[in-house]
Design a protein around this nucleic acid. Structure first.
Lengths: 216, 216
DNA sequence: CCGCATCCGGGGCGATACTG
DNA sequence: CAGTATCGCCCCGGATGCGG
């Protein structure tokens, strides 16, 4: 809330989004698009409810978040990013990329996890490596929820939630799935025994990074 | 210092660099390369000295900053980013880009300014638009210090400090210089009367963005 | 149940003074 | 020059209450 009082664009940006929790709220809104207060609270384990309300008001005042009162039949308020707020995506992505190395360690014993958070590593590691083939959907499933990866025509995007008709479903612990996303699968290599695959292995290979075969 | 306790790369990154002042310290180290405690203190107006010391120690512990004791003749300690710390450059650049719109307003009455901070807008707006020509150096001079822009062979980089043999020197207030960097100069347009040019106008035009002429 | 507001304890933060 | 020491304040975290 307190300004750095520096006429510098980096400092001015941090004046707006530098407070604690603010960029994590933006992360959730980038992932989920438009969601209710309770959805945000659930996607941000550890946040105090008064802080979430305060941050949302600040972001709204800064023109980064929009609050929509849904029509009477639904009777709920929806929060979403304004176009200006969506311009924070490069910031959150750069942070996500910088933070990737910290994920190779096992999660701390009291670390929480939510499935949609896999979207950031997925967008970083995965590519559509066979653009000519018809589109596929792959679901990454953990005990904390699912992320669905859709690849087609050379494009790839990740969104929270389960897929309706996935070509492949990979289940396992978050670190095991991360190792798969970052390390890929070498030619003829089998899936790690920590993971379980249901569906088409070729659909999975299509998006995974190429790994050198372990043998020379 | 307190962890978000979320197994997410964005949250893990903010665990390390999310504290107040931390990313601004990284900004200074990215700009200046290697500098003394006092240089950092001077480039970060408003920071409390105990906080600067604490943050430097945290960054050192996280492996992002390296502390070098210079040999006896100099007898000073130098701080610089490790390679891992330099990986924060995309984060700081993304923040700088997001913060640019806040710079179009006049600086707040108690806003401080340092010349090197112009490096971020310069790297965003300026390009070497005549790669075939011999290299040029342009100095952007304000009351808070200078930034030097060097363009040649299609590359452009900005560094803090005055130039030794500049082809052009632009002097003026920070907002006026920013308006020049972002708006450019249309064909035959004169430099704003707020600014003063000493040297070769063509060297300046070489790096400025193209502006449509005001007349139809 | 959803979207907060209020209260309170602890600690991060800001400013100044002081030291090897 | 490069920090440490101290102190007050306000942000933050956790719990609870409350109106729609």
């Amino acid at each position: 809330v307190r300004s750095y009082c520096q006429y510098c664009s980096v400092a001015k940006a941090l004046d707006v989004v530098g407070d604690r929790w603010t960029l994590l709220i933006v992360r959730e809104l980038l992932l989920r698009g438009s969601c209710r207060y309770t959805d945000l609270r659930n996607g941000l384990p550890g946040i105090a409810t008064n802080l979430l309300a305060a941050r949302l008001r600040e972001l709204e005042g800064a023109g980064l978040v929009r609050r929509e009162e849904a029509p009477p039949p639904i009777a709920t308020t929806l929060f979403s990013l304004t176009p200006r707020g969506a311009e924070l995506q490069p910031v959150v992505e750069a942070l996500g990329r910088f933070g990737i190395p910290y994920m190779s360690a096992e999660p701390a014993p009291n670390d929480e996890f939510r499935g949609p958070w896999l979207s950031w590593p997925a967008q970083i590691y995965l590519r559509d490596r066979e653009p000519a083939m018809p589109a596929v959907a792959i679901e990454l499933r953990t005990e904390g929820g699912s992320t669905t990866v859709e690849a087609g025509a050379g494009e790839l995007r990740a969104r929270p939630g389960a897929a309706t008709n996935p070509d492949a479903v990979v289940s396992g612990s978050p670190p095991a799935i991360l190792r798969l996303l970052s390390g890929g699968l070498a030619q003829g290599e089998e899936l790690s025994p920590e993971l379980e695959l249901d569906g088409d292995l070729r659909a999975l290979r299509r998006v995974l990074p190429r790994a050198e075969s372990t043998a020379a």
